[in-house]
Structure formats: structure tokens, C-alpha cells
């Protein structure tokens, strides 16, 4: 059989749109997920038992569910709660944000714990309160330590966005499949899709590794 590059070239604008949606979903869900994750991590490390329990329950709940099931849940739930159909993009964004927050929060928690207790003591000794200590002393150091891991998780999130395929949201994967089926060129399109994902994720992880080395020195 012959490998038909023409199919890919003709479909490039359509595929690029799909890739744009994948990247947008990744960036927004990562940003929202990290904000929520900081909150969850602070709750998990707080002195209040109730807050700790709520946070632990949230994290363990989402970590024991398949992402696809979470996506199905929110595609079903969000229109029901809002009372009218919303675009699939928002349902997906909410699903990814809440789901990824559970994973990010474990990273953030480890990052906060990596900052030595002496730092907290020193901040308290100068009269800072909890909020200021976290904001100006602990979190900046924690984020510095965990940036590589957060970025690695973002690469995984980017791979995960391909799962919106199951609800036919038109990301890069869905776009590739549409072209593949319309043109009857499954081999070309899926090999191309794999290559694009590989190049993005591999160069992303190489960049993270370089960052990590620079960090270490």
C-alpha cells in the first residue's frame, strides 16, 4: 500500500484548528487545576481536621475514577445543572480542571512539604501571619521546586485531552479521525497524529529535563 501525504497536506488547516483546541484546553485546565490544587494542598496541610478530610476525600475520589467517566459525568451533568445546553468545550474544561486538580494537589503538597520548617519558623518569628508566610515565603519556594513536575503533569494533561474524542469535541484527535474516515486514510492520519503528539510531548519533556538540570545547579 502507498502512503498518501496529500491527504494530510489538504487537511492541515482543519487539523491545526483541532490542535489549537487541544492546546487551549490544556492551558486553561492546567491553570485552573493548579489554582484549585493550591487550595486543596493548603487544606490538606491545615490544622483543621475537617478541611483535611474534605481535601483528602476530593483527591482520593477523583484519583480513583477513570478520566473518561469524569468526562461523561460532566457532559451529562453540566447542561442539567445550568438548565440549557452549553458548548461541549465548557463541559470538558470543567471536567479536566476538577480532575487534574486532584493530581496537581499531590504535587503542590509535596512541594510545600519540601520547604523546610525553619523557613516557616523564621517567617513567623518576624511577625508574619499564615497568609503572608504562605504567599511570600513558602509558596514561592515550593513553586520553584515543583515547576518541572508541574510541567510534566501538563504534558500528561495534553495527552489526556485526546480523550474528548469520546464526546466528539473537535480537538486534534477528533479532527484526525474525521479526516481519516472521510478520506478512508486511517493509516496515514493516525501515524501523522502519533507523530505530532510525539514531537510535542517529547520536545516538551526534553525542555523540562533541561530546566531541571539548570535548577539543580
Amino acid at each position: 500500500m502507498s502512503f498518501d501525504l496529500g491527504v494530510i497536506l489538504d487537511a492541515l488547516p482543519f487539523l491545526a484548528q483541532g490542535l489549537g483546541l487541544s492546546l487551549l484546553l490544556t492551558v486553561l485546565a492546567a491553570a485552573g487545576g493548579i489554582v484549585l490544587a493550591v487550595l486543596l494542598a493548603l487544606m490538606r496541610l491545615s490544622g483543621f481536621r475537617a478541611l483535611r478530610l474534605v481535601s483528602a476525600a476530593y483527591v482520593n475520589f477523583f484519583r480513583s475514577m477513570p478520566l473518561i467517566l469524569v468526562i461523561f459525568w460532566f457532559f451529562f451533568l453540566v447542561p442539567l445543572i445550568i438548565g440549557r445546553p452549553v458548548g461541549g468545550f465548557y463541559s470538558a474544561l470543567i471536567a479536566f480542571t476538577l480532575f487534574e486538580a486532584a493530581y496537581y494537589s499531590e504535587i503542590v503538597r509535596a512541594g510545600i512539604q519540601s520547604v523546610s520548617k525553619g523557613q516557616v519558623a523564621a517567617a513567623y518569628a518576624t511577625g508574619m501571619r499564615y497568609g503572608a508566610t504562605m504567599r511570600f515565603v513558602v509558596l514561592p519556594q515550593a513553586f520553584r521546586n515543583m515547576t518541572p513536575v508541574l510541567l510534566t503533569q501538563a504534558i500528561i494533561l495534553f495527552q489526556d485531552t485526546s480523550l474528548v474524542f469520546v464526546v466528539s469535541l473537535r480537538d486534534f484527535m477528533t479532527a484526525s479521525t474525521i479526516v481519516a474516515r472521510n478520506e478512508g486514510r486511517l493509516v496515514e492520519m493516525y501515524v501523522f497524529a502519533a507523530a505530532v503528539y510525539f514531537v510535542i510531548c517529547f520536545s516538551g519533556s526534553m525542555w523540562v529535563r533541561r530546566l531541571q538540570r539548570k535548577h539543580a545547579t
Binding site: 500500500m1 485526546s162 480523550l163 479521525t177 502519533a194 510525539f198 517529547f202
Partner: peptide, 23 residues
Amino acid sequence: VELFRNIPLLVQLFLWYFVVPEL
């Protein structure tokens, strides 16, 4: 390791299902 970890699982499943038999 690099090959299998940098391609989404969904894409890998489609490769095994639709592409590998053709190749």
C-alpha cells in the same frame, strides 16, 4: 520508553487496531 510514553494511549490503541494490521 520515550516512544510509548510520549504518544497518548488513545492514539496508541488506534495504531494497534487500525494501523498495525495494515503494516
